[in-house]
């Protein structure tokens, strides 16, 4: 018998070193992240402490001015408004998304088709979708025109450049990120648990709040994070639908890197936003865990 082939030996080598195998599998993704995420992030972190160069880029030096500028009420207002938008968008997505996810999970053989419908907007670019929203909500857009033609209203609503338009755009853009994780956790729900609850005397509302909702919390948490984080950083929606009136942190960052050519302030704004996301997410998770604990305490 001939000895093991090279391939067999290589497989044997990897098999005997599970750690090495794991790292080998992780390497491509890690390498990508290192080059295109970690390095630029460090660069930006550095920029945020340097004085600006009027032609874009930075001059050498060290300053905290880029961060201190945030204490200007103008910028604080933008940060606050952005946070409120993100919270409102998440809450409304949850309100609209949970029933949809629930219905899909109970839709039997229509499930896959309905999931397909939820994903359908992804077939077009986000930008196109936001412009579509704009055409709908313009003064002479489809909504106003239909209502006026029907004689419901005399003059068109002013919808564009209002918080309503921005919020509507955000919800339209991010709703699928709420629906899909909630659907995933509801779909896994063992229906015999609901039957068990029913036979133990639980009417429909109790079955929902005592069994369905707690068991779908992982989906609710995942969906909320998936909506909240991009909503906090969004700039396109507010740009297209909010016009000059509804400036969010995302627009601020974008402006600094493009028209204002103030890269250090743009970098600082990015880091402020990241800090905001981290704080918000950790508060959210803390509150949820505390809720769990409280529920446990209350019950025992």
């Amino acid at each position: 018998m001939a000895g093991p082939t090279l391939r067999q030996r290589a497989l044997r080598f990897l098999h005997d070193r599970p750690q090495l195998k794991a790292w080998a599998l992780l390497a491509p993704g890690l390498g990508w992240l290192l080059v295109f995420f970690v390095v630029p992030l460090l660069l930006m972190f550095g920029y945020s402490f340097m004085p600006r160069n009027v032609y874009g880029g930075v001059d050498l030096g060290f300053t905290l001015e880029n961060y201190s500028r945030f204490f200007d009420p103008l910028y604080l207002g933008i940060v606050l408004k952005t946070t409120l938008y993100a919270i409102a968008c998440t809450a409304l997505c949850l309100m609209f998304g949970y029933p949809v996810a629930y219905a899909i999970a109970r839709a039997g053989r229509w499930r896959n088709f309905m999931i397909f419908l939820v994903m359908l907007p992804f077939w077009t670019s986000f930008l196109v979708r936001m412009y579509a929203m704009m055409f709908l909500m313009r003064d002479s857009g489809l909504i106003n025109k239909t209502l006026m033609d029907l004689g419901v209203i005399e003059t068109g609503f002013e919808m564009l450049s209002t918080p309503f338009a921005v919020l509507a755009g955000l919800i339209f853009g991010f709703l699928p990120f709420m629906v899909l994780p909630i659907y995933a956790s509801l779909e896994k729900l063992d229906l015999s648990l609901l039957e068990a609850a029913e036979v133990l005397g639980a009417p429909p509302a109790s079955r929902f709040f005592r069994v369905t909702l707690p068991l779908s919390m992982p989906g609710v948490v995942a969906g909320s994070l998936l909506v909240f984080i991009p909503a906090l950083g969004s700039f396109l929606t507010s740009d297209v639908l909010g016009g000059a009136k509804e400036i969010l942190v995302g627009n601020l960052v974008q402006n600094q890197f493009s028209s204002a050519r103030d890269w250090p302030f743009g970098s600082a704004a990015s880091f402020v936003m990241m800090a905001l996301v981290l704080v918000a997410v950790s508060v959210y998770l803390r509150v949820r865990d505390a809720g769990d604990e409280m529920a446990k305490e209350a019950k025992s």
């Binding site: 063992d190 015999s192 648990l193 039957e195 068990a196 068991l215």
Partner: peptide, 9 residues
Amino acid sequence: FQNYALFPH
């Protein structure tokens, strides 16, 4: 129930 259907949470 056959699979016991205990509430996992």
